[in-house]
């Protein structure tokens, strides 16, 4: 589905990605692992056609993602319907006056008929348990609700590919479980690419992982293989070396430990 060949990308002041080559098949569940600043968010943006590779190529179903390609309206609409990105910060993503408008935004841009939009929204609000929030202002919701609305706002187009940037960051255990359940549910039906540094959820959300470090792809493999490679995790900043010794055994700790439900250290 996605093929990346020697992709590099620079921000004005620093390199973000450097010679990344990888491919992602349809209906795979992928995790992009890396510490903050490793380039995983940038990679998501490149995959979503929000930024374009400076060198190297990214293809989606054989079509090269370039700004020229997105000028073509038919391609742009098709791509935007099929590939959806959930931003890490819901305050950025939720910019409409009500939850209803939020869900209507994408289909409206894609010129769907209004009656169909209404029907779809009603349906999705039900299935995602958001019906009671339809008239509310998104910025007045709790973090967990915001994240759910953000997810719903992209699921409305029933995308084939779902890109998620730190979907569980700053969520309480209940919302976090909802998110994980939802991603489990996508198994075998959608391509899900999740950028995260939350190792606890890895095995549930991904079948295969890529590890990024300082803009380079440094490892790839199944979740259990990578989690077993302590040296790799330490070198890429996914766990801290000095916080390893706990009574009764080794526990990987990392910046999001305090968000995890108790007993979630299942990989240790």
């Amino acid at each position: 589905m996605f093929d990346l060949n020697e992709v590099s990308f620079r921000y004005p002041d620093a390199a973000a990605l450097c010679g990344v080559t990888l491919s992602i098949a349809a209906r795979q569940r992928i995790a992009l692992l890396g510490a903050n600043g490793s380039g995983k968010s940038t990679l998501l943006r490149l995959l979503d056609g929000l930024a374009f590779a400076e060198s190297g190529t990214i293809t989606f179903n054989g079509k090269c993602l370039t700004s020229a390609q997105f000028e073509e309206e038919a391609f742009a609409f098709d791509f935007r319907r099929r590939v959806a990105l959930v931003f890490q910060n819901p305050d950025v993503q939720l910019f409409n006056p009500t939850v209803f408008d939020e869900l209507a935004f994408a289909p409206l841009q894609l010129r769907w008929p209004n009656d169909e939009i209404r029907a779809r929204i009603a349906d999705l609000l039900q299935t995602m348990g958001l019906a009671h929030l339809a008239e509310r202002a998104p910025h007045r919701l709790s973090e967990g609700e915001k994240k759910r609305v953000a997810l719903a706002s992209v699921m409305i187009t029933q995308p084939d590919v779902l890109l998620l940037d730190e979907p569980t960051a700053s969520l309480d255990p209940r919302s976090r479980n909802f998110m994980i359940e939802y991603l489990l549910d996508c198994r075998g039906r959608r391509t899900v690419i999740t950028a995260t540094h939350d190792l606890h959820i890895l095995e549930e959300i991904a079948d295969y992982c890529f590890v990024l470090h300082e803009g380079r792809l440094v490892a790839a493999g199944a979740p259990n293989e990578l989690l077993a490679d302590e040296k790799l995790l330490r070198e890429t900043g996914l766990v801290h070396a000095h916080r390893h010794r706990h009574e009764g055994g080794v526990v990987h700790s990392h910046p999001h430990d305090h968000h995890s439900p108790s007993g979630a250290h299942r990989h240790s």
């Binding site: 979503d48 935007r80 910019f95 409206l108």
Partner: peptide, 17 residues
């Protein structure tokens, strides 16, 4: 916010219900 709008198909024209 612009990126988030683009990601959902925004191309400069505004459509509302």
């Amino acid at each position: 916010v612009y990126a988030a709008m683009q990601a959902r198909g925004f191309r400069g024209e505004i459509h509302t219900l």
